[in-house]
Design a binder for these strands. Structure first.
Lengths: 334, 334
DNA sequence: GTGAGGATGGCAAGCGATTGCCAAAAGTTG
DNA sequence: CAACTTTTGGCAATCGCTTGCCATCCTCAC
């Protein structure tokens, strides 16, 4: 509010009897100044309570020490792991962390990027809703790291749905299920597409029938319609696009008196907080979401210091594992 | 990465045939420039894809259009609601939102404030761990809005534990409980203290015995020790410092074969996601956490434009309500 | 026709750092 | 001791925008 005139390099310089440039170098390029002088300047700076002004630094040098993470829906617990991991890594690196919500809209996503453009060194885009072309276009002039999305050779980290989906199918098949229904999430979601593709492929190889219903809103509330639709399909195993939806399905099934896993088995994706609290506890594909956040930031930071000898941007794939709880069981005898 | 030379007011000025100051005013103080000129400048700016650089603006004018929110533990679902609300409100106001984790440490909190000092217009401090004195000190030179903490007359918003705790006691008493145990959270937590005080007062007025155990870590993992300790106390009703702890307690109780609410009743605070998923579903004191986040940001923004005619900084208290689910029931006959 | 006053645009001085360039000082070498 | 290289510190320009102050130019009233 009241600005008590923060101390600047000039104040320090005057007090220490050196030029401002020397003070600046003391902080930004210490080896450029004599050890004795440096010590002295540091001492004076300390005494005066000097703090470099990141804005001024950024304006001149372009180095902002700030990154932004954009998520489609900050409400969705699924993202909290990723947010957490990203914030942690950023904080460790002394980089300030901006969080933005894109409300599931590609346009909104673009806008935020525009807005923040000048203020950050790069963006972590979680489950981006933008098209491949748009993304590539933006990557031309911005540092990007994608989470749960792959576009060309842009740096990305995904929690692997391929093997995971295979595990799900394997698990269900080994319980005797011959027919699976996939309750899909939003169609603009790349991840939703990947999960479906992987699931279908796995089912094909295992000789299990699989069909897709939806899209359903990936929230608990979406579970009602999803469960009802699944029930008429006659499938004995339901795989939901994510845990939220799965929990909603479980709830609806309970309402309708359909025993789980007695009559149908239910599987989710993500292993969010709460997946082991519901009844029956949810069998779900767990992935290292925190890790995904960390790695994404890592990629961004690394890219910043990219030079000729550095390897090209990377695609990281993180392993998943199936957490088997109580919502899956042997196929009913009938 | 590669900087494609962003367009500046000078580019726009040159192209439009006016001075840079005119371009600047067109954006920052439109009424200061002739309507026709303004239109023209806007058109040119649009065509050139000009975006004001917030850093330069902030450096000169001091107006950063950015706020930071600091939470003690980004891992705790309790804060999700508040974070969400705050981000939303900030976004609505066109203010960028920085999120920081303080790892439950007052020192860390101070550091972050120092670091971000130059970059933001103000801070939302959620469940701050800093002492009253420190907080007041910082408030001298920084814009603060407190969530779930009250210090002097600093702007704050709290989810009211007083009436809430009263409701809890009332509910339990009406079920016949005569003896309550409070399973407390971290002692540095202001909120923990408030809850205990309110609970004790309410119990006193209602003639119910109440005692405090703990502190326990306010996480699911803390529930084990808490449940065990509570059991030996012989109380029939347990009130946990928050839902995480309550859920942990529920879990431990189940392990030990203690029927809930058959033998003991359990109540939590916060109504986090998952509170209605566990078995038995948790009776808990729900508060408008999102709202708290919104209001905190609101207070901050309002304070920014504080002038003589404005009212003094405010203390907002948000109402709670008790959500009665399945973890509370009549006191056992024995 | 003249002067007052408001509207409008431009000039230039910052905001607080970074950094290329230069010169003085110090260190090396034969 | 001369000639040269390396260190070290200072000068001043610059990043992109804001804003106080001044000069015009219009309007309007008398």
């Amino acid at each position: 509010m009241n600005t008590p005139k923060r101390t600047t390099i000039y104040d320090v310089a005057a007090e220490a009897g050196v030029a401002a440039s020397t003070v600046s170098r003391t902080f930004s390029n210490p080896r450029r100044v004599n050890a004795a002088t440096r010590e002295h300047v540091l001492r004076v700076a300390e005494r005066l309570g000097y703090r470099p002004n990141p804005l001024a630094t950024a304006l001149q040098s372009g180095h902002k020490a700030t990154i932004a993470m954009l998520v489609p829906d900050i409400t969705n617990p699924h993202f909290f792991g990723t947010i957490r991991g990203a914030e942690r890594r950023a904080s460790e690196a002394g980089v300030t962390f901006i969080l933005g919500n894109t409300e599931e809209s590609a346009a909104n996503e673009r806008n935020q990027i525009e807005r923040l453009d000048h203020s950050v060194d790069g963006f972590v885009l979680a489950a981006s809703r933008m098209s491949d072309e748009t993304t590539v276009g933006i990557a031309q002039s911005h540092n990007l790291a994608l989470v749960n999305r792959q576009v060309d050779s842009l740096p990305s980290v995904v929690v692997d749905s391929g093997p995971g989906s295979w595990q799900i199918v394997e698990h269900l098949a080994s319980l005797g299920h011959r027919s699976i229904v996939y309750l899909s999430g939003p169609h603009q979601s790349w991840l939703a597409g990947e999960r479906w593709k992987a699931l279908r492929a796995a089912a094909g190889r295992r000789g299990v029938a699989v069909s897709r219903l939806g899209p359903f809103p990936p929230k608990v509330g979406g579970g009602g319609a999803a469960a009802d639709a699944a029930l008429v399909s006659g499938a004995t195993a339901l795989v939901a696009h994510n845990d939220l939806l799965a929990i909603g399905v479980l709830r609806r099934l309970a309402e309708r008196g359909v025993p789980v896993p007695g009559r149908v088995s239910v599987v989710g994706y993500d292993d969010i907080f709460g997946a082991d609290l519901c009844v029956p506890a949810l069998t779900t594909l767990a992935g290292p979401e925190d890790e995904a956040g960390r790695v994404a930031v890592e990629l961004l930071l690394r890219k910043g210091s990219l030079s000729a000898d550095h390897p090209a941007p990377q695609r990281v794939v993180l392993p998943t594992h199936l957490v088997i709880r109580d919502s899956t069981g042997p196929v009913p005898a009938s």
